[in-house]
């Protein structure tokens, strides 16, 4: 089914599509980080989990750069440069991770 999107909706759809390059591994890593954090029961463990998340995200971005960046032309045609695709990818990933960590911190 073809939908006609307004500009902000289209923008959100593009940002989410950029994240899809790393969506599955990144979500698994975020979930594992949250579970580890919950099991530890230590608030200061967030620092370790946070840095682990940053490092794994960097590795995922490096993977995309090496093996998947040819698919960025799809987004280039939509007005998004390669840098913008990476930015959107990281933005959503870090945003989801932070939201999860904050949620866990509030429940602890």
């Amino acid at each position: 089914m073809v939908i006609v999107w307004c500009r902000p909706m289209r923008r959100i759809a593009i940002v989410i599509s950029c994240f899809k390059f790393i969506a599955i591994p990144s979500t698994i890593i975020t979930l594992l980080s949250v579970i580890t954090f919950l099991n530890s029961g230590n608030v200061f463990f967030i620092i370790v989990v946070f840095w682990a998340k940053i490092i794994t995200t960097s590795l995922l971005v490096a993977y995309v750069y090496a093996f998947r960046s040819k698919q960025f032309f799809f987004f280039n045609n939509l007005g998004y440069s390669n840098a913008a695709v990476y930015r959107n990818m990281i933005l959503v990933d870090v945003g989801l991770a932070l939201a999860s960590f904050i949620f866990v911190l509030l429940t602890l």
Binding site: V2, V4, S17, K20, F21, K70, Q71, F73, F74, N77
Partner: peptide, 20 residues
Amino acid sequence: YLPQDNLLPAFITFSQAIDL
């Protein structure tokens, strides 16, 4: 730009491509 290789990323559906 239509590249030599695939333009559509594997995770994009045809309807999404038309919409975007």
